[in-house]
Design a protein around this nucleic acid. Structure first.
Lengths: 167, 167
DNA sequence: GAGTAACTGATAACGATTGTCAATTCAGTT
DNA sequence: AACTGAATTGACAATCGTTATCAGTTACTC
């Protein structure tokens, strides 16, 4: 593979922004990405840097395909297998969080500092994040009751968002 | 329907069996199945009767493939497309409940009278059912806060079961 | 019992994801 | 800076679970 030809890999442009789901993560400098990758015990490659770049710049809850397209727009030489592989590796190490809704393709987000769950509109797919420490606590209690050691959980609420209700 | 002579294509599924998750549903007589099917606005066919029969006799949380294999053992003429189609139709009408864990094949159970969620062992796949009205209530509150009209939810807890912890 | 729409089985097609493998690149070592 | 082994890559094939297609069959209304 070759990413030779042009300029530094990190040409700092801006990415198209979705109307409502705005960028909401703090800017991350390249050395932070490198640290992340090394922390996972992996080699720092240009493709992985590019993937992290796109992932952190774009909106949250993207599919692997969407990540691939973002990356591919900037670096057409990068193949989708690389994107899938890296996402999987990161998911294994909890560097990204995988959210699966029904039979739809998995969506990923860089694991947020604060844990949260999702409230999804079944009509327009809008995703609202929420936190409920009370629910978390109850979950722990349920696990304890059955003598399970809890590793993680999936809580997805589905409904109709305010806007879709009026239509 | 015609009894063909050719052997059916059996794509052998090899999912781990839950040793302790035994039959736990009350016996259902055929006329009840017929009623169920008619209630969905569908025609009563031998295949659908066979599928319901297997579904209610076997253990809970089975994959479509497993349902197919159960049905197929008794009625080799029934194709898997029929099983998938009927399961989907029943899921649409909430006659069966679909549970998806990670990227694994969907698992089905006849919709239980009482709503419950699942606690799954990440090592041996054992599934424990639990109810938590308190969590349900909190979910309603979260939805209300965001002005969503809740349609359903997915709550899956993952952990390590007591037995796997000792190993 | 006839008519018709619903249903069926076989098979092809599908989309998401994973495996394969030769070629390339990274990251330590001279 | 060049050397080297192992990790990584891109292209593509393969696999998975699931769905669509379609000609032939069946259940239900009259």
């Amino acid at each position: 593979m070759e990413i030779t030809t042009t300029a530094p890999i990190l040409t700092k442009g801006r990415n198209p922004v979705e109307p409502e789901k705005l960028i909401r993560r703090e800017p991350v400098d390249p050395s932070a990405f490198k640290r992340m990758i090394r922390q996972m015990g992996l080699k720092v490659t240009q493709q992985r840097m590019a993937i992290l770049e796109s992932l952190s710049a774009g909106r949250a809850h993207v599919t692997a395909q969407e990540v691939f397209e973002m990356v591919n727009a900037k670096y057409p030489e990068i193949g989708f297998a690389t994107v899938y592989r890296f996402l999987r590796k990161m998911a294994e190490q909890s560097m990204v969080t995988e959210v699966r809704m029904g039979g739809l393709p998995a969506r990923y987000e860089l694991t947020p500092r604060r844990h949260h769950d999702h409230l999804t509109c079944v009509q327009c797919s809008q995703i609202v994040e929420f936190e409920s420490p009370q629910i978390e606590t109850l979950q722990e209690m349920v696990a304890k009751e059955h003598n399970f050691r809890l590793t993680h959980h999936v809580l997805e609420l589905y409904g109709i968002c305010p806007r879709c209700q009026t239509e």
